[in-house]
Write a protein that binds this DNA or RNA. Structure first.
Length: 465
RNA sequence: GUCCCCAUCGUCUAGAGGCCUAGGACACCUCCCUUUCACGGAGGCGACCGGGGUUCGAAUCCCCGUGGGGUCGCCA
């Protein structure tokens, strides 16, 4: 049987880190087994679903490179199917109409909670042999409930958590169609997973409690039960649950924040899954290695430091032209236009090893394309009066040499020797003048890239002030 | 409260009864490299939640406790 997995988000917001990981694992599992990965949009909550959210989810998946083989399927476009199945269950007696009103149900719940009981539907309208049902109230539109078995247990071997058993007595008859006739989540999932031939349901931990109900419905429909794998949740850096209100951000936010998709993907893969001591692996390698057996059943805390480390790695590895293109965009958003000289690729060659973030990288190299505002503290510390004449001397000698890092280095060394100084005594003020701050790569290489004319101009301008 | 799930360094994790004096990675600390800051290299610090069992032997299996989380919607 070919593997078929799905990612089934509800379009009520962006694709956040937890959803992205669920999608990633489902996708990888399908890839690993040569199967199909299906995208299904669960939009039956009409009030909260938006097209913008659908787009945001697809954007996030695209950025991470999670392509789907089928879909997107929209549940709202599958109403006919659901209605048909609903009717068949009604006919088969595995579902029934319930005329308890919302208010009635609410009162029931309240009373049960007050009595310290687990809130459950009381089965008022559940048909039983020999049971007399109440008179149908004229003013209530009925919902449809699934007739859940009342005895025995539902069990499945969760691919992540192992065997899970839940007693049917713990469950009540859930509503599968609202009073307006529209089907509800648990029902749609069951019908879709069945009809789409899903073989492995890989989803969040929060669905564990839905699983026995879904299995019961699947059985009522005579369907084969898929395998289930429940992924534990991702916690924020403060070990608190990630939610819209607390720390959950769109995966696209990571793009904006200067992360490479390769880094985010690698990081997410390693969060709750492992392959021995492997830490760094690309998309393809991950697909080859991925298995459900090595997923951790416990929750994992998000750690930005490690993401940064991976990001640094992928920045070093990135194709230089692709990197240049990305950085050009980021510089443009700072109103910095990249000129032909110095060549951005060369500048990045000098700087990429020092960066763990694309925004930081862009920010660090701005001075190549715009004269920097020198940091005052650095000026005071390094551009001391005694060094100014020597720098002027340097500017003069530099004006006649062949412009290469080696020759520049040679000239500085000459001066260092002549005045019996240490190299940094000259290098540091040069950094301040040329870069605006006292930290930079090798100063001769910086000068070589910056160009003779611009370098000398900046030095002379600074000394005049 | 109910039911369900989870529990190894600060964090992510390896670990399928002896290979564990518990391994790797991030972070942190020290040293080296060095022209500053990074990068890189070499070291270091640092954990099996507690208690009972089972076993010749338990991080690993079982039970209890504790702690954390999820769930109990005409939301998904």
């Amino acid at each position: 049987m070919t593997v078929r997995t799905r990612f089934a988000p509800s379009p009520t917001g962006f694709l956040h880190i937890g959803g992205a990981r669920t999608a990633l694992f489902s996708w990888a599992y399908a890839k690993k087994h040569g199967g199909q990965f299906i995208l299904r949009i669960e939009d039956t909550d009409v009030a909260r679903s938006t097209p913008a959210a659908v787009q945001a989810i697809m954007d996030g998946m695209h950025w991470l490179g999670l392509d789907y083989d089928e879909g997107p399927f929209y549940q709202m476009q599958r109403m006919e199917t659901y209605k048909k199945v609903l009717q068949s269950m009604l006919d088969a007696g595995t579902a029934y109409y319930c005329y308890s009103s919302k208010a009635e149900l609410e009162a029931l719940r309240e009373a049960q909670t007050l009595a310290g009981e687990k809130p459950k539907y009381d089965g008022k309208w559940r048909p039983e042999v020999g049971k007399l049902l109440p008179a149908i109230p004229a003013d209530v539109k009925p919902v449809i409930r699934f007739k859940n078995p009342q005895t025995g247990v539902v069990a499945w071997d969760d691919l992540v958590k192992g065997r899970i058993e839940i007693a049917n007595s713990e469950m009540d008859d859930l509503i599968i169609a609202r009073a307006d006739g529209t089907p509800t989540y648990n029902f749609c999932v069951v019908v879709d997973d069945f009809e789409m031939g899903i073989t492995q349901v890989i989803r969040g931990d929060d669905h564990v409690n839905n699983t026995p109900r879904q299995i019961n419905m699947l059985m009522a429909l005579g369907a084969t039960i898929p395998q289930y794998a429940h992924l534990s949740m991702i916690l924020g850096g403060d070990s608190q649950k990630l939610s819209k209100r607390h720390g959950a951000v769109s995966v696209m936010q990571y793009h904006e924040d200067g992360y490479l998709p390769e880094a985010v993907l690698n990081y997410l893969a390693r969060l709750g899954w492992s392959h021995g001591d492997a830490e760094i692996f690309n998309r393809q390698q991950f697909c080859e290695w991925f298995d459900l057996a090595h997923i951790t059943p416990s929750a994992a805390q998000f750690n930005t430091e490690k993401l940064n480390w991976l990001n640094a790695h992928y920045i070093k590895e990135a194709n230089i032209d692709a990197l240049a293109s990305d950085i050009t965009t980021r510089l443009a958003s700072m109103s910095i236009e990249v000129t032909l000289q110095p060549k951005l690729q060369d500048v990045l060659g000098l700087y990429r090893e020092r960066a763990n973030n694309l925004n930081q990288l862009a920010n660090d190299i701005v001075y190549f394309y715009a004269r920097p505002q020198a940091n005052v503290a650095d000026v005071d510390k390094h551009l001391t009066p005694d060094i100014k004449p020597i720098l002027l001397e340097l500017a003069d000698s530099l004006s006649t040499i062949e412009w290469k890092a080696e020759t520049i280095h040679h000239e500085i060394n000459e001066l260092v020797t002549k005045h019996a100084l240490k190299f940094p005594k000259i290098a540091m003020p040069l950094r301040v003048i040329l870069c605006g701050i006292a930290q930079s790569p090798s100063i001769d290489q910086v000068m070589a890239l910056l160009g003779q004319q611009e370098t000398l101009a900046r030095i002379r301008l600074a000394l005049k002030a």
